[in-house]
């Protein structure tokens, strides 16, 4: 019967195809698992190895001299806070400002140029930003400082904040702006009180993500904030930072410092995950508030 061969041929191909399909599916599932394993492993190790060394002394004392057991990273925790505060003061306003430009004024050549430069800046390796901050701030100032570290991290925040602001503002429907113009509200007021306010949840998300991204940065701090074994609250002095301290301790030969490195890393990741989680909470609240 000629019919039979015509019917059975596709069925045989079907077997191969089904096999390929199953293989591809298996691979995709395996890839997903394989990617998530390191993530879980890293978090597990951070908690297991770090939690034991997080204690009152760790949170309140400065480092002991090499080889001596004890001491803590209090100065580094405060230092990270100071550097991040400087970074946010620089990065958030400039980022939001340029985001507003891109969304509300930047439909032209210069806007495209800024948009492109922001993306380029986003891709510049952090260590290169560190060199730039070194020669722009540290060299004229003649010493390492918390401020220079903040400048480096602030610069790194700008493109993330700017693009997030732009994207969120563009999602605000034009009819909303028209409504405001129709009420006789000037453009600057419309932009700040209506558009930006409508987009606020997304803009805050962008800022927090930028914050989380730079919070753990180490490379640009190596020759800007530099690190410090002692307390320092002055902006123009070398300052300790959690990430720097973790790096120094991790490559040191002392066992006690290794433990502290894990503890410092745990604190750092809690800070970052906390920021990301805060984003989730604020944005979902914002949505509840905004939507029905």
């Amino acid at each position: 019967m000629p019919n039979l061969s015509a019917q059975s041929a596709p069925q045989q191909v079907g077997l191969v195809r089904r096999f390929t399909n199953a293989g591809a599916t298996t691979f995709a599932v395996a890839a997903a698992i394989l990617v998530l394993v390191p993530l879980l492993a890293i978090f597990a190790y951070l908690v297991i190895k770090g939690i034991g060394s997080v204690n009152w002394a760790f949170l309140t004392q400065t480092p002991k001299p090499p080889g001596e057991v004890g001491g803590g990273m209090a100065n580094a925790i405060i230092g990270t806070g100071i550097i991040l505060a400087v970074a946010s003061v620089i990065g958030v306003p400039l980022g939001i400002g340029s985001g507003i430009y891109l969304a509300e004024y930047g439909r032209n050549r210069f806007g495209d140029l800024v948009r492109f430069t922001a993306d380029v800046l986003n891709g510049v390796p952090s260590i290169v930003i560190g060199i730039a901050a070194y020669s722009l701030v540290v060299v004229p100032q003649k010493h390492f400082s918390a401020f220079s570290g903040g400048v480096a991290l602030g610069i790194m925040m700008i493109p993330t904040v700017a693009r997030a602001t732009e994207e969120m503002l563009l999602m605000v429907p034009n009819v909303i702006r028209e409504a405001a113009y129709g009420l006789g509200i000037p453009k600057w007021r419309t932009t700040l009180s209506i558009s930006l306010r409508t987009a606020s949840a997304g803009v805050i998300t962008g800022c927090m993500l930028a914050f989380a991204r730079v919070a753990g940065e180490t490379a640009p701090l190596l020759f800007t904030a530099f690190g410090n074994q002692f307390w320092n609250l002055k902006l123009n002095q070398p300052t300790a930072a959690l990430s720097l301290q973790v790096f120094t301790y991790a490559i040191s030969p002392y066992d006690d410092w290794h433990k502290q490195a894990w503890a410092g890393a745990l604190i750092l990741i809690v800070l970052i995950v906390g920021a990301v989680a805060a984003v989730r909470i604020t944005t979902s609240r914002g949505m509840l508030k905004g939507g029905s």
Binding site: V35, P38, L39, I42, L46, A212, R213, A215, G216, E217, T218, A219, S243, V246, F247, A250, A265, L268, I269, I272, V273, V276
Partner: peptide, 8 residues
């Protein structure tokens, strides 16, 4: 995974 700092 992208949020974990390099140093960690």
């Amino acid at each position: 995974l992208a949020a974990i700092p390099s140093v960690i």
